[in-house]
Simulated scan of single mutants.
Amino acid sequence: TEQSADEVNTAIADAVENGKTINLTDDKGRRIVVPAGSLGYAIIGSETKHAVGFGNL
């Protein structure tokens, strides 16, 4: 995403606290929507590009 680390952190914290979805837009304009309850962890503010995956446990 082109959003700042603080913006992403705020979006995630709000979604987790209020049981909402995390809504982000990637650097190609695609929308990413993740139910907060499905989030295992997030790497925020890293200079290295990381792949993100979600799975069922």
Results as ranks from 00 to 15, higher is better:
53 G>K: 10
28 K>S: 09
1 T>S: 14
16 V>N: 06
57 L>C: 10
5 A>E: 11
12 I>D: 11
32 I>S: 07
1 T>P: 04
15 A>N: 03
5 A>Q: 01
56 N>I: 12
20 K>L: 02
32 I>M: 08
11 A>Y: 01
51 A>F: 06
22 I>C: 05
48 T>Q: 13
19 G>L: 00
27 D>I: 10
27 D>T: 09
18 N>Q: 05
19 G>S: 07
9 N>R: 03
37 G>F: 13
10 T>F: 09
13 A>D: 15
17 E>F: 13
50 H>D: 10
19 G>W: 04
37 G>Y: 09
6 D>A: 09
42 A>V: 07
41 Y>W: 14
28 K>A: 06
17 E>Y: 06
29 G>Y: 14
43 I>E: 15
46 S>C: 06
1 T>Q: 11
51 A>I: 08
51 A>Y: 12
21 T>Y: 04
47 E>P: 01
27 D>A: 14
18 N>T: 05
6 D>S: 05
1 T>I: 04
32 I>D: 12
6 D>I: 03
5 A>Y: 07
50 H>Q: 12
2 E>D: 15
2 E>N: 15
56 N>Y: 11
28 K>E: 13
20 K>M: 00
13 A>W: 10
12 I>F: 07
34 V>K: 00
11 A>D: 04
56 N>S: 09
49 K>Q: 04
3 Q>N: 07
17 E>Q: 12
56 N>D: 14
16 V>W: 09
23 N>F: 02
43 I>M: 15
26 D>V: 05
56 N>V: 14
39 L>M: 14
50 H>Y: 15
42 A>K: 06
55 G>C: 03
42 A>T: 06
46 S>P: 04
53 G>N: 11
53 G>L: 12
4 S>T: 11
19 G>E: 07
35 P>C: 08
53 G>D: 14
46 S>F: 07
54 F>D: 02
47 E>A: 08
38 S>K: 12
39 L>G: 03
41 Y>P: 03
8 V>L: 06
45 G>D: 11
5 A>L: 00
9 N>A: 05
10 T>N: 07
36 A>R: 02
19 G>A: 02
23 N>W: 01
23 N>Y: 05
4 S>M: 01
10 T>H: 06
40 G>D: 15
36 A>E: 07
55 G>L: 03
18 N>I: 02
50 H>A: 10
55 G>V: 02
1 T>C: 10
35 P>Y: 11
51 A>K: 03
55 G>K: 09
39 L>Y: 13
29 G>D: 12
26 D>K: 05
12 I>H: 08
9 N>Y: 05
15 A>W: 04
48 T>R: 08
7 E>I: 01
27 D>L: 12
3 Q>F: 04
31 R>F: 12
1 T>N: 12
11 A>V: 03
15 A>L: 01
33 V>M: 12
1 T>H: 08
42 A>C: 10
45 G>N: 13
13 A>P: 00
26 D>I: 06
26 D>F: 12
48 T>W: 13
51 A>R: 08
26 D>P: 02
10 T>D: 13
49 K>W: 05
35 P>L: 06
53 G>H: 13
44 I>R: 06
18 N>L: 04
